[in-house]
Amino acid sequence: MSAKTKYNIVKEQITEWITSGKVKPGEKIYSENELVKMFGVSRHTIRQAVGDLVHEGLLYREQGAGTFCSYKPDQTREQTPSLNDKSNNTVKNIGVITTYISDYIFPSIIKGIESHLTAQGYSLTLACTDNDLEKEKQCLQTMLKRNIDGLIVEPTKSSHYNPNIKYYLELEQNNIPYLMINQYYSQLMPPHIIMNDEHGGFIAAEHLIKLSHEKILGLFKNDDLQGVNRMQGFIHAFREHSLPLFPEMVITFTTEDQNINLLERLEKFFKTDSRPTAIVCYNDQLAINVLNMLRRLGLRVPEDISIVGFDDSSLAVATEVKLTSITHPKMDMGIEAAKWIISAVEKKGHPPSIVYEPELVIRNSTASFRESTK
Rank of each mutant, 00 (worst) to 15 (best):
365 S>D: 08
335 I>E: 14
297 L>S: 04
19 T>S: 09
303 E>A: 08
12 E>Y: 01
356 Y>S: 04
174 N>H: 15
110 I>V: 14
225 L>T: 15
25 P>K: 12
177 P>L: 09
195 M>T: 00
224 D>Y: 01
205 A>H: 04
176 I>W: 13
278 A>V: 08
285 Q>N: 10
34 E>V: 07
122 Y>H: 11
235 I>F: 01
45 T>H: 08
198 E>I: 01
251 I>M: 15
121 G>A: 09
184 Y>K: 13
191 P>I: 05
155 P>Y: 12
76 T>P: 01
348 K>A: 02
115 S>T: 10
83 L>D: 10
110 I>P: 07
363 R>N: 05
179 L>H: 06
102 S>Q: 07
177 P>I: 03
231 M>H: 05
19 T>G: 01
267 E>F: 04
218 G>S: 09
144 L>V: 09
309 G>I: 04
298 G>C: 06
170 E>N: 13
80 T>G: 02
302 P>H: 11
131 N>M: 07
84 N>S: 14
71 Y>E: 00
115 S>L: 03
281 C>R: 04
61 R>V: 11
156 T>R: 03
200 G>A: 02
195 M>V: 04
265 R>A: 08
70 S>H: 02
298 G>T: 04
225 L>V: 06
210 K>I: 00
367 A>N: 05
232 Q>Y: 10
312 D>V: 00
145 K>M: 12
6 K>V: 00
126 L>Y: 06
225 L>M: 14
239 R>Y: 04
185 Y>R: 10
203 I>K: 00
284 D>K: 06
308 V>S: 02
109 I>H: 02
190 P>N: 10
180 M>V: 02
57 G>I: 08
178 Y>Q: 05
226 Q>K: 07
62 E>D: 01
186 S>T: 14
55 H>L: 15
306 S>K: 08
274 S>H: 11
146 R>K: 15
128 C>T: 01
1 M>I: 11
73 P>A: 11
25 P>Q: 09
112 G>W: 12
57 G>Y: 09
156 T>H: 02
324 T>V: 03
81 P>E: 12
145 K>H: 13
229 N>P: 00
310 F>T: 01
32 E>V: 13
288 I>W: 03
214 E>L: 09
373 T>V: 05
111 K>S: 14
201 G>E: 08
97 I>F: 02
178 Y>H: 09
135 K>R: 14
272 T>F: 11
316 A>D: 04
62 E>H: 01
242 S>I: 00
204 A>N: 05
240 E>I: 03
5 T>F: 05
33 N>Y: 14
279 I>W: 02
226 Q>F: 06
143 M>G: 10
278 A>T: 07
89 N>H: 11
290 V>R: 08
288 I>Q: 05
42 S>D: 04
106 F>L: 11
68 F>I: 05
318 A>L: 13
367 A>S: 12
53 L>G: 07
